[in-house]
Amino acid sequence: MSTAVALKPTQRLTGFMPLIALAALVAALTIADPDFLTQRSLIAVARTAAPLIVLAAGATLVVLCGGIDLSIAALASLSTVFLALWLPDLGGLATPAVILVAATIGAVQGVAHVLLRIPSFIVTLGGMSILSAVALVVSGAGTVRVVDDSTVRWLDLYLAGYVPMSAAMAIIVVALIAVVLKVTPLRSWISATGYSESAARLAGTPVDLVKIGAFCVSGACAGLAAVMLVSRQFSGGPTMADNLLLPAVAAIVVGGTAITGGHGSVWRSLAGALVVTLLRVGLPIVGVPSAYEQILYGAIIVVAVALTLDRSKVSTVK
């Protein structure tokens, strides 16, 4: 039928919108300043983006389930403190230990959300506050210096001389999550839970486990992001990752994942995280005055969401 054929290209296009937005942004920045597209600035973008990509990828799972995880940044901050404190004693084991602890904290929030039937927004808002406070107490309200960073420094090295290890790691994490979702029933379970929890439950989907699992992965990702931050900054700090919360949420929605749940993917969040980082890093590089930077940043985020959200899949836009 003619209309069907006419509609298909646009539908296919929506899936690529995050990539198109990304390409458009790179093009715009290059036009604004032809020197932008240098190896140095690209490496800077990749290194800055890495922790954000990991944070956003984990939280995307929670959003796909129809919830939200506001505690990721606070959890990452706390994790940097833990890592910095444990590195002298645990050495190489400190990294897995921190990720494990962060995953557990995420899972605990998931359990609280599911068992006590409290909205995830509230649970993680409370969690954010608690975790921030714990980080302050544990760290003595100050930066914890890492004297011997030999076991985490690998993340700050470069693959083949150019590719930051942390960025490669971030992409591996995204790919891993994406592949696991693709080849197992998890994708169906998560989508069903996000689109319509009651329908999912009445089809025997382990809705509660799926949600707890999503929070657990989100926590683990926050832990990994913390490791990346420590490897770069040679220290842990109780507020080190706090300013990543809104960029992470922005990355998810700019990627086109529906905040109402069900529709989206971690690949979209990867593209979204790159857009957000490009704006952060790129606008100053091309010489936008800092006052206007925020205005542009806000405007571009809103426009990007307008472009990337696939409205045919999302019935109500809240």
């Binding site: 069903a192 689109y195 329908a199 009445l202 899949k313």
Partner: peptide
């Protein structure tokens, strides 16, 4: 509301 997940495919709904 409860029987099906509207935005998901026939195949996914059938094997849910």
């Amino acid at each position: 509301l409860e029987g099906m997940v509207g935005a998901m495919s026939v195949a996914e709904n059938m094997t849910l």
